[in-house]
Write a protein that binds this DNA or RNA. Structure first.
Lengths: 244, 244
DNA sequence: CATCGACACTGCCGCAGATCAGCCCACCGT
DNA sequence: ACGGTGGGCTGATCTGCGGCAGTGTCGATG
C-alpha cells in the first residue's frame, strides 16, 4: 500500500480492499472539488431530491429524521471518510436530513462521476459497496441498542463504536479521541433526554470508565467499558481485507 | 403492464419500475428453484457467511439481532416479494439471523445468477436496488420509532406500515390484513414487553382504531389510526414509477 | 463592565412501561 | 381423561427515565 495515503476515505477503504496506486489516484481525483460548510448548516433537507453524493473530508456531520410531531432522531454521525447521501441518490427523495455539526469540508461528487469511476475500477466499486453495507450494519446495531440496551450500555456502546470508527481513519486510539458532540446531540441520537445523558455520563465517569468532557473522550478503562457495553466490533472492521 | 403478474416480487417491483414482458420473464426464471421451510426454522444464523440470496415467495419471516446478553431485537419482518440476506452477501458474515415465522417458500438465488440477470436487464438491477434502498429506509423509520415514539404511536405506525407493504403485493387493503405475528414477536420488534403490547393493543381496540386478534388485523378507523401514528407512507411507495 | 446565550449539571416528581405472578383457553399427544 | 404447551389476558408492584425548574460556567457581544 502507498505510504502517502492522504484522504481519510482512502485510509478507510484500504482496510477493506487493498488498493493499487492507480486505484488510489482515481479515488483522490474524485475528491478534488472541495467545498466548505459552516457548523450547523443543513446540507440535505428531508424530502429534497438530490443527484450528487458528498464525501466528508474534515469535520463531523449528523443525519437525522424529523418526526411529524417535531421530535428529532439522529440516525448516525458521519466522520471524515464517510459518504453523505449515497443511498438517497436511488430514492427520488431523501428520507432524512443532513446537518454539519462542526465546520466541515466536503467533496461534491456527481453520481455520474462516481459510476464512471466504478466502471473503470471495479475493485473500488466493491470497496464502496462494502462501506455502504457497513453503514447499514451500523444503523441496525443502533436499532438494537435503542430497542434493547439500557441507557448506560447504550451510551458506552456508542462511545466505543465512534472510537473504533475514528481509529480506522486515524483520528483516535484506545486511549480516547476528540469529540465535538454536545450532550444534546448525544441525546437525540440515543433516544434519551439531554438531562439523562448528563447523568449517565457522570455515572460512567465516576465508575472510572470514560470521561466525556470539553470536547474530548478519554477511555479511563477501555476493557471495563467494553465489558459493560458488550461491545463486539466485528461489524465495523475486518480482521483481513476482503480483496488483497 | 402484464395482466398475468404472478410473483409478489414482480408485483412489487412493477410499482417502482415498469417492467417489460421480457424483464418479467427473467425475473420469474430466477424464482424457479423453490424450497420450503417449516415455521420457526432459522434460515441464516448471525455470524454465518453466505453466498446466496433468497426471495420470499410465501409466508412471513423475521430478521433479528441477538445481543450478547441474550435479548433479541427484531430488525424487520419480511413478507412475500422481499429479499432475504441481500446485504449480507457483501459483508463476509451476516450481522443478523433470519427465521421463518410461518411455514414459508423461498427461492434460493446464487449471487452469480442475480448479477448475471442484472447485467442482462439493467432496469431490473435498478428496481432491485430501489427495493434495497426502501428496505433501508424502513429500518431508519423503525429506528426513529424506537427512539422517539411512545408505545401506542409505535404500535399503530408498525401496523400501518405492514398494511401498506402488504397492500403493495396484494395481501391486504385499507380494511385490514391477515397477520400471523404473535404479541411476543411484536414486542421483540418494537422494543416493548409482551405484556405491554397486549395492553396497548387493547387500548387501540377500545378506541375503535384497530383490532389485532386471531391472526387478523382490522382497521376499524384507518384515518384515525393514521392521525394517531402520524403515519406518512411516502417512504414506502412512489406516487409515480421511477422508470416508465 | 453587564448581559446574554449555549452548554453542563443537579434535585425532585410523576409516569410509562418493565417485571412478577397468575389465570384462561385452545390445541396438542398419550 | 389427562397433562403439557403456547398464546393471550390481567392486576399489583417497582423503576428508569423524562419533565421541569433552577444553578453554574464559559465565551461572545453590546
Amino acid at each position: 500500500m502507498d505510504t502517502t495515503v492522504t484522504s481519510p476515505l482512502a485510509r478507510k477503504l484500504g482496510c477493506f480492499v487493498a488498493l493499487s496506486d492507480a486505484e488510489l489516484s482515481v479515488l483522490e481525483r474524485l475528491q478534488v472539488r472541495r467545498r466548505p460548510f459552516a457548523a450547523g448548516r443543513e446540507i440535505v433537507h428531508q424530502g429534497q431530491s438530490d443527484r450528487a453524493v458528498y464525501i466528508l473530508v474534515s469535520g463531523w456531520v449528523c443525519s437525522y429524521k424529523t418526526l411529524p410531531d417535531g421530535a428529532r432522531q439522529i440516525v448516525d454521525f458521519q466522520i471524515p471518510g464517510d459518504f453523505l447521501g449515497l443511498r438517497s441518490t436511488l430514492l427520488q427523495t431523501s428520507d432524512h436530513s443532513i446537518e454539519s455539526v462542526t465546520d466541515i469540508q466536503v467533496c461534491e461528487v456527481p453520481s455520474g462521476d462516481l459510476l464512471a469511476a466504478f466502471a473503470g475500477t471495479p475493485r473500488l466499486a466493491t470497496a464502496v459497496l462494502w462501506a455502504a453495507s457497513r453503514d447499514e450494519a451500523m444503523v441496525v446495531e443502533h436499532l438494537a441498542g435503542l430497542g434493547r440496551r439500557a441507557a448506560p450500555q447504550r451510551v458506552a456502546h456508542f462511545l466505543l463504536e465512534l472510537g473504533a470508527r475514528l481509529a480506522l481513519v486515524g483520528f483516535g486510539t484506545k486511549a480516547g479521541y476528540a469529540c465535538p458532540l454536545t450532550q444534546y446531540l448525544l441525546a437525540d441520537a440515543l433516544g434519551l433526554s439531554a438531562v439523562h445523558i448528563n447523568r449517565v455520563l457522570r455515572q460512567l465517569r465516576e465508575l472510572g470508565l470514560v470521561t466525556f468532557r470539553d470536547g474530548t473522550v478519554v477511555f479511563d478503562d477501555y476493557g471495563g467499558l467494553v465489558a459493560l457495553a458488550d461491545f463486539d466490533p466485528t461489524y465495523l472492521d475486518q480482521e483481513r481485507p476482503l480483496l488483497t
